[in-house]
Design a protein around this nucleic acid. Structure first.
Lengths: 135, 135
DNA sequence: GTCCCTGCAAATCCTTTGCACTCCT
DNA sequence: AGGAGTGCAAAGGATTTGCAGGGAC
């Protein structure tokens, strides 16, 4: 196994991700990191996100919009994805335990982790629709 | 809304998908359709899969392996994804209802659908590992 | 005849990778 | 010094799209 050395860039990526709750893509994170590291490259962001995910320090998931999202939270929890504005919300993790227990019996293998996505429209987008419908 | 006309290619894509239980990608489906339509193009497969998914005739999901998978089953059910061989198994849908009921209260919006993925190693891969470990 | 659908190829988007150079230890 | 990390740019894979011709209605 390869030794891992400190890097300011990686540290900044971790901090940036920790301070965000919007489950950014690599590119979104890249954009906000550029204010602190104007010369950082997108490749470096991808490389470090991949590394951190493999180390288990962050979580990586794809919710069907064509790009990978990253989350500093590693404890299992659910996501709500708004189909209108593409926002991703965390959902209370109380729901998680019951679900994983449900699965133990009929699984065709050993389950290590699971991911749950709810799709719909968030309250904000529903509001906007209402006000534009009253025309 | 645009009118939709019959096409032999689209019909074949639907039939092919219906006859498969392995949740193929567009490319995998393309390969097997070529035996019946040697001249079909990958673009046509993508276009029709996209259309069918929008019409709600098929389901589309991404499980984190970088490409989209398609499923003829539109009723909600869970998936087990083997991290070793990348196979995707359907799981009994008895689990589904309880889950969506669990979610109704804390959701930040109106839930239309949801997707659940369990990750791990399937029994076959676990077996193979055992036999190769006994060296 | 009209408009949708196809095949083909180019374009686009997201992510990874090779290389020369820099930074950490 | 030695190896890991970086920036850059090119490569790679997946998906979409523009266009001219063919098919459905």
């Amino acid at each position: 196994m390869k030794a891992i050395k400190y890097s300011r860039q990686r540290e900044c990526i971790k901090t940036c991700l920790m301070n965000r709750t919007d489950h950014p893509t690599a590119d979104a994170l890249y954009l906000s990191i550029r204010s602190e590291f104007p010369n950082i490259s997108l490749g470096t962001v991808y490389r470090n996100l991949k590394l951190l995910a493999e180390l288990g320090e962050i979580t990586r998931f794809s919710c069907g919009d064509g790009s990978e999202h990253f989350d500093y939270t590693t404890e299992p929890h659910y996501h709500f994805v708004c189909k209108a504005c593409k926002a991703i919300y965390d959902l209370p993790k109380e729901l998680v335990r019951e679900n994983s227990e449900l699965l133990t019996e009929p699984a065709p293998g050993r389950v290590d982790s699971h991911a749950v996505f709810f799709y719909g429209e968030c309250d904000e987008c529903l509001k906007k629709q209402k006000s534009s419908n009253s025309s």
